[in-house]
Amino acid sequence: MNSRYETSYDELLQPGPLMLETGVSRLEDGRLLVAARTELPGCAGRMFDWWFTFFDSTRHIRWWHPHDHVELRGWDGRRRAGRGYVGSTVRAVEALGEIPPVPAVLKFHPPENFFGAGRLSAALARGDVSAAVCARIAFGDEPRLSADGDPLDGEMVHLTRDTAHGAVLRSRFLLGAADGSGEAVPERLGLELMRHCYNEFSCLARFLPSLYYGEHANGEKGPLAW
């Protein structure tokens, strides 16, 4: 296991191939790293980012993953529908493939906090990244939260890069406590999360462009075929 994964997401900012694009690896500190790479044909980073400002019902998340997503339990008051989600918390119930449904809580953070100083903004300026969605996550009926409500079970990073054919999504999940507290996250859970992530964003790509243009998101009405 390469220990660089323990401290940095910065390598995700470069567009070239990585040693780990899709897979699961156990870090030296016991945490589990889950990676997934998903093609999003016809999509763009601005659409991907907008989706997180849009979805607000169980119906919406079932479009996203018809098999695994069970219930959206709602956003907190910090979310601004149609405008922004950073700083807000969302709660849902979802399965991970063959793993039965459990409650999940995600709190979205400023993406730049997950990367070295200035590196995300530089990648955005170069066009190597078109959107970044980052959160801390927790699972279970009584999720582990910090005093200020931050989930403590792991981290989630999604980065898109726009291409001539659509967008490429790189996803990373870092599961478990860095201080070694609690039980180690089973590798089976990591594999099911990897599959879940690939499937949910493959499903999203099938309808996201039409939904984005149909909602006139960001003032765009979409291109005409004739």
Rank of each mutant, 00 (worst) to 15 (best):
S8V: 05
Y9T: 03
D10F: 03
E11F: 14
L13H: 00
L13S: 01
S25R: 07
R26E: 12
E28C: 07
G30L: 14
L33E: 06
L33G: 04
V34Y: 00
V34G: 00
P41C: 13
M47I: 10
D49R: 13
D49N: 12
W50G: 02
W51S: 03
F54S: 07
F54H: 15
F55K: 06
R62K: 15
R62S: 10
W63A: 10
W64K: 03
H67Y: 07
H67S: 13
H69M: 15
H69G: 00
V70R: 10
L72P: 03
L72T: 07
A81L: 13
G84H: 04
G87H: 07
S88Y: 03
T89V: 05
A92Y: 03
V93G: 00
E94I: 03
E94K: 10
L96Q: 10
E98G: 07
A104G: 08
F108C: 01
H109K: 05
H109I: 02
P110Y: 02
P111L: 02
N113E: 05
F115S: 02
G116K: 08
A117T: 07
L120V: 11
S121N: 11
A122C: 02
A122M: 06
A123Y: 08
R136V: 00
I137K: 01
I137V: 15
G140F: 13
R144A: 15
A147Q: 13
G149T: 04
L152E: 15
H158F: 12
L159M: 04
L159C: 05
T160A: 05
R161W: 00
A164Q: 13
A167I: 08
V168M: 10
L169T: 08
R172F: 03
R172Q: 02
G180P: 12
G180A: 12
S181Y: 05
S181L: 10
E183S: 14
E187Q: 12
R188L: 14
L189A: 08
E192L: 11
R195G: 10
H196L: 09
H196N: 13
N199K: 12
N199E: 15
E200N: 04
L208W: 06
Y213S: 07
G214S: 12
E215V: 07
H216C: 06
A217L: 09
N218Y: 08
E220H: 13
G222S: 10
